[in-house]
Design a protein around this nucleic acid. Structure first.
Lengths: 235, 235
DNA sequence: ACCTGAACACCGTTCAAGT
DNA sequence: ACCTGAACACCGTTCAAGT
């Protein structure tokens, strides 16, 4: 029964106040890591490769970061920094919620490796907090009170993440497929042969571009979730 | 531009028809893998350790499975096998949806390693398909038609997964905390100091058991999602 | 048909030593 | 204060060889 405390990068000061002269800074390291991640995915990020990209020895990073997970926490927060969370006072709570939802999705689709980090890492960085604060404001303005503010907030982000993460997985699974994926669909239909209803549905989606279908699916779900939340407000 | 086809374990026959005499079978391997996963988590499952547990050489597994990902596909489908998807004809579509949602959540909380697999692996095993077929039936019975059936289906599971995966992450992050986590909450509040609203909310949840709070949050979100979906039906 | 062992190309992380 | 190199304890996977 070890009683080790949980530790996040955000719980301690960076070793470099980000403005000194020699050596590297967190910013450089994070930027290089993002480049590597965007180019090669999560599996492509190793401490050695990142060190090499920075023109440094493989293990020099350990002076700036306690371990790889801390590095991941840092790049994870960058993701949150790319999200647009508009002021609900200006656009109304429903619009604000819609916009942030679409924005979250877009960011994940842009940085596909982030899908693997979401829900694995705690989101305690400054950017995450900024977004969380803004969405909280959004649901407060909508009329929620007390814990319901957080519940509504959690419901929306759960939907967005739950919808988007598998999208990324499917995309990467089908990467390298030249055709529109007809033979894949056929194979899947064969596996589902025991369930006539299911396999009918699979073949039926034949003619649609998967990207527009997912877009439609996301919109359908989003308005449903927002309607459902709105329903909590009428008392 | 390599045009490698996507391949799932489920797209090819197992090497053993599961009833022969010598050697191991997929069933044994999967069962042992599940034990290892439940005991040590995803990081604790290595081909070498699994081989050892089966009293075999480290690399003997490669005769039954093409690579580790295939093994993961197999154990992943076991997860789906533990879910309860009741017949909507008997309990009504809303009940059926509620029950399957809670069941999904419970299964994930029971096998925490599955949280890392969801959305990373395609769900094409027999158990996944059975659940998918049943939930499709549920939304069909509710009155959805065409693509909307799948959209509603996707919305519900997105919510459940998006809600539950982070739950697991928080739990494992705080594993080893003896106290009720007061000091953690304090630390988090300090990090969020710039956002008075947010940090107030964090301290306000003080007295509650996180487990019951999550339960409440899940229920709140679930009825919201179901209400929202139901709203799509009135035309 | 099934399993082994050695080997390859990687990992994250530690740590004494350098400047 | 910052970085290096060697070393440790792991990985997944391949493959020739055994029975």
């Amino acid at each position: 029964m070890t009683s080790k405390q949980y530790n996040s990068v955000w719980f301690r000061e960076p070793r470099k106040p980000a403005g000194s002269s020699p050596g590297r800074s967190r910013e450089e390291i994070v930027a290089a890591a993002m480049e590597l991640l965007d180019a090669e995915g999560l599996a492509g990020l190793s401490m050695r490769k990142l060190g090499a990209r920075l023109g440094a020895g493989a293990t020099s990073l350990y002076w700036y970061v306690a371990h790889k997970d801390e590095l991941l926490e840092l790049v994870y927060d960058e993701i949150w920094g790319e999200m647009t969370a508009p002021d609900p006072e200006e656009v109304g709570w429903r619009n604000a919620a819609s916009i942030v939802a679409h924005s979250m999705r877009q960011v994940i689709l842009r940085h596909r490796w982030s899908a693997d980090l979401i829900g694995r890492l705690p989101a305690l960085g400054p950017n995450s907090l900024m977004v969380a604060d803004q969405t909280r404001k959004t649901f407060k303005l909508a009329g929620f009170a007390g814990a319901d503010i957080d519940y509504a907030n959690a419901t929306l982000t759960a939907f967005v993440f739950g919808m988007t993460i598998p999208e990324v997985a499917w995309d990467t699974a089908m990467a390298g497929y030249d055709y529109d994926g007809d033979d894949l669909r056929q194979t899947v239909a064969k596996v589902a042969a025991d369930y006539p209803d299911l396999s009918d549905a699979i073949s039926a989606t034949d003619y649609e571009d998967p990207r527009v279908m997912r877009e439609l699916c996301f919109d359908f779900g989003l308005v449903s979730v927002l309607d459902g939340l709105e329903r909590r407000l009428v008392t």
